[in-house]
Design a binder for these strands. Structure first.
Length: 581
RNA sequence: GCCGACGUAGCUCAAUGGCAGAGCAGCUGAUUCGUAAUCAGCAGGUUGUAGGUUCAAAUCCUAUCGUCGGCUCCA
């Protein structure tokens, strides 16, 4: 297998796989006692797991990198050998590699392949580069712990991540992209733009929204409410605490207990809601429902609290308290295709509005499930039909569904090409059963209803985090907490500025003034850093003519604009939810 | 929860067992200026928290809370 002639994906995989072997060889040279785990190529690079004290590797990453360069310089041929399983087992026993021996035990074939480069031998399917010298552009990126074979309870190995490319430019581009992602980190921008904070005094995984963040969230929430009402959803609301017994009925107390906040007060046990479904179900159950009423679509911006493990918390992306744009659709099984189709359209409309890409995945019945296989088959088919009718490409994830029903997951793709979990649509056979949810059919029979759980942004918090990174903090006009900032050249223009400001506020434009006694350049810089879409620059010229000079976020100037024309431009862009200003 | 790295002024960081410091932000004053940083001065700290070792702790040890990178999880 020639690996060096082009740079297709397969070849990149070979390059990275060999890079991981070279890294493992370097680690073994420096730390002979390190035990080899596994070392595959992955999406953006490669890793290798070692049984060794993590501190040692994290403090010696540079040394490992240097040793790798030596091995590359030695240009050792990488040779494949076919061995019987017994022979291979003997080799790795001798080399005191227990993890490799364990892997061999699990292989059923009679023979296995090993790859040899100099003194280093690894159990491996290959293929590999011809020699270590073919690797040129690589970088070790981080050290982290990882469970052996990915199972909690197994020993924790130390994983080194790295990446490699065929050209220096590709490597630089990749590292540049990582830098760009760091610049856009929503945690950093959230602080710099004064949108939100997370305080350890308040508690990990809980967000406090500062005025600008709260405004931004309010804009998104209002947009969501409007769009839901347009699509036949009804707004509902439910309390944050409820009796534990409700969650006994729903089954959450048995299946989800470790993630729930429970407390007792008086003689009773209470739950802080981790989900909105039971409350919506109670609304459904509050009276007898006819087939004529269906489908019923209940929507709530429902704030829920879940006890997430401390290690999984991450900015706005993974929290303990968050707000889902949650809806539950109660319908007749025959309505499923149409309802799911509508949700798909809705989700796509939202992605388009925010200029995000999307990828769909259909997850089918897992090994452990409830409900009849027949129901599963029909529901899965309904989801598939809905996807096909909307003309959408999707991937299948066999056995990845929830235990209570199949689902469609939509991943959002941001401007850097990163994927984020977004909308989900889940069919549920479980809760209608547990709560005995029925409707009266045309023939008077009381039949079981089908329930669909769905979110179209996911959670407001996570979506905000993704959005902040997607736009790099420079929100489109309709979302910008501050749309316009008026900058005066000297204090002489203050009254003109104040007048203008009031005019805009009256028209619903979110305006701010910077009347500080500072140089214009200083104020412009501040407004740029604050990523304000429009600066209105007011000096002697403007004050005399009664016009404004509008400086866009990208530096372009619009001169001699009448205030009312500017206000109209802004108002129109907001109305159309234009992405570009 | 697990592995590792961390936690010093609002922010970014310095001080490696020996007097806690800088830039930005803030405040005061001067300056009245045209598109990414005007000048000067002032103030800002129980070094996350609680213990311990030491003549002496930001620095070493223990616990705890939190943050970051991963793993696992994500009904």
């Amino acid at each position: 297998m020639k690996a060096t002639d082009s740079k297709g994906d397969l070849n990149l995989e070979i390059l990275r796989h060999s890079a991981s072997h070279i890294m493992a060889q370097a680690v073994k040279r420096l730390f002979p006692k390190a035990k080899l785990g596994i070392g595959p190529a992955i999406k953006n690079g490669f890793y290798y797991d070692f049984g060794i004290d993590g501190t040692v590797l994290s403090q010696n990453l540079d040394r490992v990198q240097k040793e790798m360069r030596k091995i590359i310089k030695e240009d050792l041929p990488i040779e494949k050998e076919v061995l019987t399983k017994e022979k291979a087992t003997k080799v790795f026993r001798q080399r005191e590699e227990p993890y490799k021996v364990q892997l061999l035990e699990e292989i059923e074939d009679e023979t296995v392949t090993v790859y040899r480069q100099g003194e280093f031998v690894d159990l491996c399917r290959g293929p590999h580069l011809e020699s270590t010298g073919k690797l040129r552009f690589f970088r070790l990126t981080s050290v982290a712990g990882a469970y052996w074979r990915g199972k909690e309870g197994n020993p924790m190995l130390t994983r080194i991540y790295g990446t490699s490319f065929y050209t220096e430019k590709e490597l630089e581009d990749y590292l540049g992209k990582i830098e760009e992602a760091k610049r856009r980190d929503h945690r950093k921008l959230g602080r710099e733009l004064d949108l939100f904070s997370i305080s350890s005094e308040l508690g990990a995984g809980l967000v406090i929204y500062h005025p600008k963040g709260a405004l931004l969230r309010d804009i998104i929430e209002n947009f969501e409410k409007e769009e839901h009402l347009k699509r036949g959803y009804q707004l509902v609301m439910s309390p944050h605490i409820s009796r534990a017994a409700l969650w006994k009925t729903s089954g959450h107390l048995d299946f989800y207990r470790k993630n729930m906040y429970l407390f007792s007060s008086g003689d009773e046990e209470w739950v802080i809601k981790p989900m909105n479904c039971p409350a919506h179900i109670l609304i459904y159950k509050s009276k007898v429902r006819s087939y004529r009423d269906l489908p019923l679509r209940y929507f709530e911006l429902g704030t829920v609290y879940r006890r997430e493990e401390s290690g999984v918390l991450r900015g706005l992306l993974r929290l303990r308290g968050f707000t889902q744009d949650d809806a539950h659709i109660f319908c007749i099984p025959s309505q499923l295709v149409e309802e799911v189709g509508k949700v798909l359209q809705f989700a796509i409309f939202m992605m388009d509005t925010f200029d995000l890409g999307y990828h769909m995945t259909l997850s089918t019945r897992p090994a452990e499930f409830i409900g009849s296989p027949d129901h599963w088959e029909r529901a899965t088919q309904a989801l598939k039909d809905a996807l096909r009718e909307e003309g959408l490409d999707f991937q299948m994830a066999q056995g990845e569904g929830a235990f209570y029903g199949p689902k469609i997951d939509i991943q959002m793709e941001d401007v850097l090409g990163r994927l984020w979990q977004g909308p989900t649509i889940q069919v549920d056979f479980n809760l209608p059963e547990r709560f005995d949810l029925r409707y009266v059919a045309p023939n008077g029979e009381r039949k079981r209803v089908v329930m669909v759980h769905r979110v179209v942004l996911g959670t407001i918090e996570r979506f905000l985090g993704i959005l902040i990174e997607h736009v790099g903090g420079a929100f489109p006009l309709w979302l910008s907490p501050v749309q316009v900032r008026i900058l005066t050249v000297t204090e002489k223009e203050n009254s003109f500025a104040e007048n203008l400001h009031q005019q805009m506020v009256n028209k619903g434009v979110r305006s701010e003034m910077d009347l500080r006694n500072e140089l214009l350049g200083f104020k412009v810089r501040q407004a740029e850093l604050d990523k304000i879409p429009y600066m209105l620059i007011i000096g002697q010229k403007e004050a005399q003519k009664g016009t404004v000079t509008a400086r866009k976020r990208n530096g372009d100037n619009l001169r001699d604009i009448k205030p009312e024309d500017f206000i109209q431009t802004v108002t129109e862009a907001v109305k159309e939810k234009r992405i570009e200003i």
